[in-house]
Amino acid sequence: MNAKERQRSILEWVHEQEHVEVENIAQRFGVTTQTIRRDINKMCELGLLRRRYGGVSLPVSATTASMKDRQVRHLLTKKRMAMCIAADIPEGVTVSLGVGSTVELVAQALAHHKSLRVLTNNFSVTSALSGNSGIEVIVSGGQYRHNHHDVVGPEVTSFFSSFTTDFGIISTGRMDHKIGLMDYDIREAEVSRAIITNTRARLLVADHSKWTPNSYCKVASFRYVDRFYTDVMPDQQRTGLPDSVEIIECGSLP
């Protein structure tokens, strides 16, 4: 990868994450921090990025627009995937729901079920289900993350390990057909692994944009996934998955 390609990838990553540490960028691209700082200097001079808190962020003028764009960009697709999953969850079962905005949409789609027991560390999930008294919600303790509205840490992994649920539903930061599921935060990876280990049916929900090996925290290989809900499945990735994975293509809303 040459410097221009690397800088373009850095810019795309910052647009997704809002703020990225220099050390993480260097680790991701396998170069020195000095090389990354030279890349950042060039992009800051062009007004594409700004240095902030030991890393790099979007310019102030672009931050709000970027957040709104990211929220809207795949929202319809994610809602469709969430409804696909909800339609496959029967009444009266137990469900583990993990971290992420996509999992929150799954909870919103499940809110019309008459009877469920839900285990979660995600307070956006509890909020989505709060209006239905027929759904029992059990919430983990742990370290609260203000920006994510959830809790993480050993209390969460212990919590999910104390139960065996019928369905465990997770999302993921990135996917690679050889490595499997990956995340940017080791604490999120640990939550997903705990759910995968302690459920009978393991359901993954992730759209096609996740097919890029950019994260460095491994969650699990695809052999630990029973059903994979996505919008569209590229042929190259389809052939790389184990035959045991049931792929459900949900498409996108009109």
Rank of each mutant, 00 (worst) to 15 (best):
T32M: 02
S158T: 15
G47S: 01
Y53Q: 13
Q71Y: 10
E45W: 10
I85E: 04
V125L: 00
T102R: 05
H113E: 11
G30H: 00
A62P: 04
T64M: 13
S101T: 13
R38D: 06
V60I: 12
V93G: 08
N24T: 09
R28C: 14
L105S: 04
T63S: 00
M81T: 11
R50H: 03
V95E: 01
I36G: 03
L46Y: 07
E45R: 12
S66T: 15
S158C: 12
A82W: 06
H146I: 10
V103C: 10
E23H: 13
T165I: 00
V31G: 11
D88L: 12
V99C: 13
T77R: 10
T164K: 13
L116Y: 02
F159L: 09
V99N: 12
L110G: 07
E91T: 10
T120F: 04
I25H: 06
N122S: 08
I36M: 13
A65Q: 14
L129K: 02
T94L: 03
M67H: 12
V22A: 08
M83H: 14
R73Y: 01
M43F: 07
S115Y: 11
T64L: 15
L76A: 14
V20H: 08
M67C: 12
L129I: 09
L75F: 09
F167R: 03
E23C: 06
S66A: 12
L46P: 03
P154D: 07
T64Y: 12
L58D: 00
F159I: 11
S140V: 04
V152C: 07
Q34K: 10
K114T: 12
S57E: 07
T126G: 14
I25W: 02
F163I: 14
Q34G: 11
K79Q: 15
